[in-house]
């Protein structure tokens, strides 16, 4: 029974649009799903290589802008010499280019910023995100600056017999997000489970030791940065084509903070952590909205964040896993089958 737990969750997620009739609730799930993808990508860097990037939103934003511009088209003059004109392409091309460009930026930034560690790494990544925001704000010819890129087209899918269908429908969009999220999950799981992943964890645990046994630290860090940035870029592209408008505030620092809260709360360095954290912070507002104004909601998040650091520094997933382990070590009749299946499903880390 317990080995079917992941399938159980998959079935739940797959059937959501069938039993959930409230379109607005579906909208919450889509946005939450997009942010879970971003949080998973941040977790690869923060949880598995131990590098805290405060500029992760930059890759999300680069993906969003690259994807929007690919599908909307642009006409810019570079340095007053070269004129680049781009005709609109389908949104799917935007997703691919957005993902690739974000990954490439991840490579460049990785190359540059892994020269420094700790506090300096944190600040250099933060600065990078702010610079990208200011470029998006000021390079008006390309990005429309504060006027925002409007009318970003939705994704289209070719269906047999129906031709190309635009994903205006929320249920279809939900499946697209779910599909990308599952792909991202599998990619991260395989990467972490491989030799590369063990090398990453080794250098997180003890960098100098990892160097001494011949692990090429920078190479693995950069590989992590590229995959992480590309996934964030894919999430950004999904976001842009869903909300259909993109402005420079997409680079806002608070989005990075949101992702960090999701990862830390769920449990950094665990595969399920960002999903659990993402769902909590996607639905925590549900619980507080009815009695709290936006300011108070934010204050609750702030308090939540501090409490997590003090009480559950490892995050929820590892804590729950440990708690269940302690039950499992007792005689078997103490543990119901349901709990056992939960234990296995949470043991993905």
């Amino acid at each position: 029974m317990s080995r079917y737990a992941p399938i159980f969750w998959l079935v739940i997620f797959l059937t959501v649009p069938l039993w959930l009739k409230d379109q607005y609730f579906l909208h919450v799930l889509i946005i939450t799903g997009i942010f879970i993808i971003a949080a998973m990508s941040l977790n690869l860097l923060l949880g598995f290589t131990g590098q805290l990037s405060l500029g992760h939103i930059a890759f999300f934003g680069i993906g969003a802008y690259a994807s929007s511009l690919t599908s909307v088209g642009f006409d810019v003059e570079l340095f007053g010499v070269v004129r680049v004109v781009h005709k609109p392409w389908p949104a799917v091309a935007g997703l691919i280019i957005g993902t690739a460009l974000a990954g490439f930026c991840g490579f460049l930034i990785g190359k540059l910023s892994f020269k420094v560690r700790g506090a300096y790494f944190i600040i250099v990544t933060l600065s990078f995100a702010e610079v990208t925001r200011l470029v998006a704000l000021n390079w008006v010819e390309l990005t429309q600056g504060p006027m925002a890129i409007n009318n970003v087209p939705p994704f289209t899918v070719g269906l047999p017999g129906l031709g190309y269908v635009a994903l205006w429908n929320k249920a279809y969009y939900y499946y697209l997000v779910l599909f990308i999220a599952i792909l991202a999950y599998i990619l991260i799981a395989r990467l972490v489970g491989s030799r590369i992943g063990r090398a990453m964890v080794a250098l997180k645990e003890n960098e100098s030791l990892a160097v001494s046994i011949g692990i090429d630290v920078t190479r693995y860090l950069i590989l992590g940065a590229v995959v992480s940035a590309a996934l964030a870029g894919a999430a950004g592209s999904l976001y842009a084509h869903y909300v259909k408008i993109i402005d420079p505030d997409v680079f806002h620092f608070m989005y990075t903070v949101t992702m960090i809260i999701m990862v830390i709360t769920g449990g950094k360095g665990t595969l399920a952590g960002p999903i659990v954290g993402g769902l909590i912070f996607g639905f925590l507002p549900v619980a507080v909205r009815s009695f709290a104004s936006p300011e108070v909601q934010w204050m609750i998040y702030g308090v939540f964040m501090i409490i997590i650091v003090f009480v559950l520094p490892q995050g929820i997933v590892p804590a729950v896993t440990q708690w269940i382990e302690s039950f499992r070590s007792r005689p078997p009749n103490d543990t119901g089958p349901a709990l056992a299946s939960l234990a296995t499903s949470r043991k993905e880390d």
Binding site: L20, D22, Y24, F25, H27, V28, I31, T32, F35, D249, H252, M254, Y255, T258, F281, G282, F283, P285, V286, V288, R289, S290, P294, E295, Q297, W298, Y301
Partner: peptide
Amino acid sequence: MNRFHSMIGQTAAAAVVAFGLVG
């Protein structure tokens, strides 16, 4: 600062109804 709500927070009212918390 309050941008988080644009993504997730502001959707709450909907979800409250969906969960049947508000009858």
